[in-house]
Computed example of a mutant assay.
Amino acid sequence: MSVHEQRRLSADLGLLFGDGGGNRWELSVELPPGTLVWPDPDYDRWRTHHRPSFWLSDDPVPAGLWSRLRAEHRRSGLWPVLLEDGMQPWSAGQIAPDSPDEIDHFTAEGFMAEAWADLAGDYEAELTPFGIECPGLAEPGTPVADPGMVADWYADVIAERMTPLGLAAAARSADALVAIGWQGALHHNEWTVPLAAVLRSWEDRFGVRLVALGFNTMELSVAAPPVTAAHALSVAAEHWTFCPDAVFQGPGTLEDYAEQIIGQNFWSFWWD
């Protein structure tokens, strides 16, 4: 029995893929003990997800493991996500996975315009200088480093909190949000798929990578952050439609929030 066959039998990672995984999931990185997390039927919207959503380590993982798995993503098709420990929904399988193919039906532009139209009327003063008029998407940033390297750095920072690690079958980091079935923004947006469309756009424009998730939190690395006040303000407008709580229950106004993200190589979000 080969090393790869041993890994296949012990982790069953091929079950995460609709086609059984083929050779994509053979890892040279030795995984710690872990289990496959299956969705609760009560949380499976269409009762069509007949396979596990992701693999989850039994215990917190050391710094460095995330980056080693991230480096193998292109070959394995598995994206690592650090997952906050404790009594989380994924511990009980209370997750609602969807097919990443659904993300193709949404755009960051459409999500932003819809959210702005729904919410801006109640916060016109706080949204200075834009007011009720949606400004549209910000221009792309200029990379300061390779996105993978920035993600590895931030994963090591998060790993200091001693968190377990998940592996999701995802072609890119944004898609892992949907594959895992995370529901942390439920009170803001009922469906996670449109949020993943925003993450895809941020991957392309700002070198963003999904690094960690909590019950209602999200941690992203950023390789091409805004470096001017004007650009940061445009990015802040997008952040507000993505996660209003991060702006209004934090700094309080769009302009104050924008000051905080200038040159910042990570974005943290939390939903009330």
Rank of each mutant, 00 (worst) to 15 (best):
L195K: 02
I103N: 00
D272E: 13
D42I: 01
A113L: 07
L177Y: 03
G86V: 04
G184V: 07
D256A: 14
S2M: 02
P100N: 01
I261A: 05
L13A: 07
D104A: 15
P140C: 08
P147Q: 11
H105D: 13
P100Q: 04
D19E: 05
F248A: 08
L36V: 01
A120Q: 08
A151P: 10
A179N: 00
G110I: 10
L119S: 05
Q6F: 09
A113R: 09
L65F: 01
E102M: 13
S201V: 03
P164W: 01
H4I: 11
E133T: 15
G86Q: 00
N216A: 15
E126C: 04
T128V: 11
E5K: 09
T228K: 05
R200A: 01
E139A: 15
A151E: 06
A212T: 02
P164N: 00
V211K: 08
V144D: 10
W46N: 10
V81P: 05
D44V: 01
A71V: 12
G18Q: 05
W38T: 13
Q183E: 10
E109H: 12
A223H: 03
R24A: 15
W270K: 07
T228A: 03
A151R: 06
W25E: 06
A212H: 05
W153M: 13
V193S: 01
F266Q: 14
Q88E: 10
F54S: 03
P194F: 03
L210Q: 06
L13N: 09
E5N: 10
A197W: 00
V211E: 07
A224G: 04
D85G: 07
D204V: 14
C243M: 01
V235D: 04
W90V: 02
R209D: 11
V144M: 14
L210I: 01
D104K: 08
L56V: 04
W240G: 11
V37N: 11
D101P: 02
W267A: 09
V178T: 07
Q94W: 13
G121E: 06
G121M: 08
R70P: 05
L16M: 12
S67N: 06
A151K: 00
A169H: 04
W90P: 01
E109S: 13
P62C: 12
H49V: 11
L69G: 04
F54E: 02
R70M: 11
G148P: 08
I262E: 04
Y257Q: 04
E5M: 09
M87R: 06
G110S: 12
G214C: 03
P140M: 08
F17A: 05
A246R: 12
H231W: 09
I261T: 09
V235M: 06
F242K: 03
V211M: 07
V61T: 12
D44M: 08
E259L: 11
P147W: 07
T107H: 00
L137C: 06
A120M: 12
S53E: 10
A196Q: 01
L65M: 12
